[in-house]
Nucleic acid binder design. Sequence first.
DNA 1: CCGTGATTTTGTGTATACATGCTGCGTGCG
DNA 2: CGCACGCAGCATGTATACACAAAATCACGG
Lengths: 243, 243
Amino acid sequence: MADQTHEKESLGATEDAAGADTAPRETGRPATRAEEIAAALEDEIVQGELEPGRRLDEQILGRRFEVSRTPVREALRLLAASGLVTIEPRIGAVVARPTVSEVFDLFELVGEMEAVAARLACERMTDHDRERIMQTHDACREAGRSGDADAYIARNDAFHAAIHTASENRALRDQIELLNKRLAPYRRFITFRPERKQAAEQEHETLAAALLDGDAEAAARAMKEHVRMLADDAFVLARSLRL
Amino acid sequence: MADQTHEKESLGATEDAAGADTAPRETGRPATRAEEIAAALEDEIVQGELEPGRRLDEQILGRRFEVSRTPVREALRLLAASGLVTIEPRIGAVVARPTVSEVFDLFELVGEMEAVAARLACERMTDHDRERIMQTHDACREAGRSGDADAYIARNDAFHAAIHTASENRALRDQIELLNKRLAPYRRFITFRPERKQAAEQEHETLAAALLDGDAEAAARAMKEHVRMLADDAFVLARSLRL
DNA sequence: CCGTGATTTTGTGTATACATGCTGCGTGCG
DNA sequence: CGCACGCAGCATGTATACACAAAATCACGG
């Protein structure tokens, strides 16, 4: 039972190295069962396999992961703390289903924070950061042409992650990436749409130009606009889909 | 029958954040034991009774709160998720003791976010918000003269809370207040110092003036500067105290 | 005297059992 | 026919027991 080579089915398994470090926990220490379960559930929520509002029954999950309720409970607590699930006493856990207004607030917040990150990145980035930003931007553009939606999402995340890293503020970076996880279920619908992808492309160009040009304010503005457009599209699409 | 009102608190309503009652009244049970314990521990950490680095033994805490280890564990998980304690597998929980660099990042982040809140508040505040900001500002000034440090801290928090509320973004507000909790152990040393209080007073004046004047950029700048000064003083003091 | 390794001890991680409050449905009354 | 009350089933909250890893202690040898 000591052998912890978890051969779980896992999911896509095509873990992109660039976006792999989206986990704020980099303890490097051996993971506990609860953390493994939390990570697995988080993936499923972010990937949209578990839709918002879905009930998360402790016993069922326990059977599914072949553990008792205890680690499952702790995993759910972890996810609840990061805002991905909601737990109400004596009721149970469900995948978080924020109100429209809450999603709006989250988009606005992440926009502001990404803008801060862009500004700081502009002021602080090393040559290596600059290179990585250019590189991920190019990769993003390339994926945009190829039309592979999954690849595009991964590259897009990598581009943004490069900016977060360049901001040289770990707390900021962690917060942004947590917020993006919470918003992932709502972004998914958007990023797949070709016209959005094209617009994002354009916005990325502006953003990258400002970054490489060292114009912090322009970069911040471009980033905020970028997120705002995304949010707008998300709401328009949500409305048209009666979500 | 539970007569607990699950009413969500109205945003601009009579919300005495000034009170910040440290005494968790146990009228009935609006929460589970784990949450009660988490709240109690959070208070003790924020108040500085539990210093950073202090070990949090599950069994000892269980005896202290007269519960088994289970709710204690969940409480610790809750606090860990909010960043107030650190849990390492097979090691246990300790009150979070971030590195200097991490504290620096946190101060910078909270400064940026408070600045965002100030800007948004400037653009969105209702008459009621405006009144509340003025009112809490006056109270703050008054407490500054009286010399009651605890009262001043409470009023100061209320002033900032009024701005957060006026920003009309709940997610932003929650994040800022969480960050402030995490920084509380390090702010404590500063806020008590008279010269810092006086400087803060001045900065508050500038900030309030910009807010009431509707100058969003000036308000954001003033807020960022306000937090930056606080952080600077905190680091200077920490160095002089060899912390 | 001190370093090194085995042993004990302690505390966390997980499992299981019990208690309590919610949910849903059926029955009886208005 | 509709609604309220009550009961049974069940999921969560809490307690307790066991397994195992890490720290502390001690014994032994250099």
